[in-house]
Design a protein around this nucleic acid. Sequence first.
DNA 1: TCAGAAATAT
DNA 2: TATATTTCTG
Length: 313
Amino acid sequence: MGKDANQNVVGIVGEGGSDEDRIIDWEDGLPSGDDLTPLSLPLVPPALASAFSIPPAELKTMLEVHRASQHTISSLSVRRKPSASSPLNGSLKPLASGGAADDGNCFMVLEAEDPEESPLSETSGRLPELGPEEAVDSSALHGENSVDDQRALKRPRLVWTPQLHKRFVDVIAHLGIKNAVPKTIMQLMNVDGLTRENVASHLQKYRLYLKRMQGFSNEGPSSSDHVFASTTVQQNLQELQQQPRPPSMPMPYNVPTMIPMPIYAIPHHPSHGVVPLNNHQGGMSCHGFDAHNPYGANNWSGSRDEQNTHEGV
DNA sequence: TCAGAAATAT
DNA sequence: TATATTTCTG
C-alpha cells in the first residue's frame, strides 16, 4: 500500500504533534498501492510515449526490479538500523530472487516482539543458525537471564496475511488435501522464512476449519465464520468430503457454494512490526511459484483492500 | 525425521 | 477469545 509504504519514511520525519498531523494529512493524500504502477512496467504507457516521440522505456526484468528493491531496502536498513525506537527493525525483508513478488501481493508479516531482539536475519529472512556455543543451554550459564535468552531466541510471530493464506490454500488445492503435508506445502509455497512449523500449525487450523465446514453443509456457516468466498477452499472441502469417513461423522448432503474462510487480521500499526515493501506492506517474499503450480502468483487476489472486504476477524 | 494433536503463549 | 508457537506422541 502506498500509504503504508510511506510509514517508513514518516517514521524518520520530525516529531511532535503538529508535525504528526501534517504527516497524517500528507499520508491521506498518497495513492494506494493499487494506484501505483508496478516497477516492472514502464511508467509511460507505450501509446503515450510514441505520441510524444519518447523512446520506449526499457522493460525491467524481475531480477532487475528485485535488485533495485534490495538496494533500496538495504540502504534504508543502514540508515535506520541504529534506531532502538524503531518498531520496524527486524522485519524489513528484501524481495527474494526469482521474483513472483511483482504483483506486490506476495508477502508475509512478522511481528517482532522486540525490535532489537528479533532474531531474523535481515538479508535472508531466516533465523540465524545457532553455533555450537549459542546452542549450549544458556540457563546453566546465565542463571536468571535464561528466560530473556529464551525469549530472544523465539521465532517472531508470523501473521498469515490473506495473500499468504491464499498461496497456502492454492498449494493445498494443487497437491490435493490427501497429499498436503507441512513439508511439501512449505516447499511449494516457496516463501522465504516460512518454516515447516508455521505451515503445520496453519494446516492444523485449516483442517479444523474444513471439518467445521463439513458440519455446516446442511445449515450453512455460522455467523462466527467470517465470509471469504474461495473456490479453491471449496475444492479442498469437496475433496475432503470424498475421503472415507468414520461412521460417526455424518456425511453432509451438499456442499455450500460459498465457503466462508476466516482471514486473519493484518496489523497496521507500526508497533506490530509491519513493514511496507514494494508499495504493499509486505515483509517477506515468495518466489518461483509459477513453476510449481497452475495457481500462480498472478492468480492471487489483486489488492489487499479487496481482500479486506472479506476480512472480519 | 516427520506429521499431527494437544498444550501453551501472546 | 483467536491465533500462532511449542511440545509431545506415534
